[in-house]
Amino acid sequence: MLNKIMDFIKYKGVIWKTPLAAALSWELAEWAGSKHPYLAPLTVILSIQLTVDKSLKFAWQRILGTVAGVLFTASIAPYIGLNGWSIGLLLLVGALIVMWLKLEHAIMIQIALSILMVMYFQSKMPSYPLDRIRDTVIGAIVAILIHILIFPPDSVNKAKKKMVHFADHLSAHFTKTAIWVQEGCSPSGAPTLQTGLQTLFQEIHQATTELNKAEQSLRYNPLGQKKRSTLNEYTQQMHKLRSGYANLADIIRVLTKWSESGNFVKEDQTVWAGHLNTLAKLVKEWKSVLDDPGTFSSVANGPAPQIKAPANIKNYQYPLALFMNAEQVVQDFQNAALSNKVQ
């Protein structure tokens, strides 16, 4: 039960941080003399995002837009009165200024909200403009401090899980390719392998996205040095996974062409089925290290698989690989050019 509570606190911060920060910001706003303390928790609710990076960006935009909108409106509103046309005029002028200064759209929204609210409330409650600025700053500061200092968002473990998940599927796809080769590279099996590659591509994109989220969350975390080191290691391992995926895609492409040439004899099929099974096993063992670093010594001490070109073709392997890749580029772009002409 205690573990579940701790997991909730660590990994579900977006649920409990908002109420905590909202309550604290309300009390601070009242203590500071605000007559509209609800503006502070309103900023908290808007500012706490999934990552610290996004929270900081929104909080800054909220403060800048609010200050600009309040000062602009408070200086002009007394001279133009309150009606639909005056509100529309100020909103238009505010939007034109934002466009002229090339500010972000989010800032324009905050300026527009401040113009509307100050226009309406200033005549009824003279303290509203000052309260809006002060309470917005209080809410933004409280939201950011709580988000950064108390169990900041952590996507490192999520990124690791997605990488392990992808490595497992990559190993399985090597095995499926080996079976396809052993069975003679049937044309009907090739589309299934290509569909699997597309799924793997989506998974590697998801893992990369999670790594980026983790990096954004840790960027402004002063207590995240250990997590940053772990994240750097995962980023390096991610390069290996991308390389493994790219090489598997190339292997399937070459095997398909070899089979279509009619020269992929049974003996070669058996040899390459064995090589692919070896690669599948290698990726699986590597995945176990990623999943549990404690297994590194047992895996590292094992014999490294040897997959090398025979001596009689060793001098030709590089130019052949270059020709294969160059041929693929020609086919890709030639087909694209023909497609554009047809359209």
Score class of each variant (00 low, 15 high):
M125H: 13
L241K: 02
H239T: 13
R242Q: 13
L145S: 09
V142S: 09
W258Q: 12
I109N: 13
L50K: 06
N221F: 11
H105A: 14
A74E: 10
R253W: 02
A74P: 00
A326K: 04
S123P: 06
K162F: 05
V93K: 01
S188Y: 07
L56A: 04
Y128D: 05
V254W: 04
Y245F: 15
D291L: 09
I144R: 03
A167W: 12
I133Q: 06
P222W: 12
K284E: 15
G33S: 06
V142E: 11
A207C: 07
P319A: 07
F72D: 06
D135K: 03
I107G: 08
T18K: 04
A29Y: 01
P191V: 04
D135N: 03
Q216N: 12
E203K: 12
H169C: 02
P187M: 07
H169N: 14
L149F: 15
F296L: 15
G274I: 00
Q331S: 11
G65V: 10
I313K: 02
P153C: 03
A40E: 08
L96P: 00
N277A: 02
G33M: 01
T18C: 04
P222H: 08
G189P: 01
E30G: 00
H173G: 01
S47F: 04
G13I: 01
M6D: 08
K10S: 06
H105P: 00
E285T: 03
V299M: 01
F333H: 14
I144N: 05
H105I: 09
A74V: 01
V330A: 11
R253K: 09
F8P: 06
I5W: 11
Y220T: 00
W26H: 03
N315G: 10
T177L: 03
P19K: 10
L2W: 10
I111Y: 06
W286E: 13
P319C: 02
I138V: 13
T51K: 12
T177C: 07
Q328T: 11
A172I: 00
A311Y: 02
V271W: 03
A140V: 09
K102T: 11
G196W: 01
P187F: 08
Y79Q: 09
S297D: 15
L231A: 08
E233R: 11
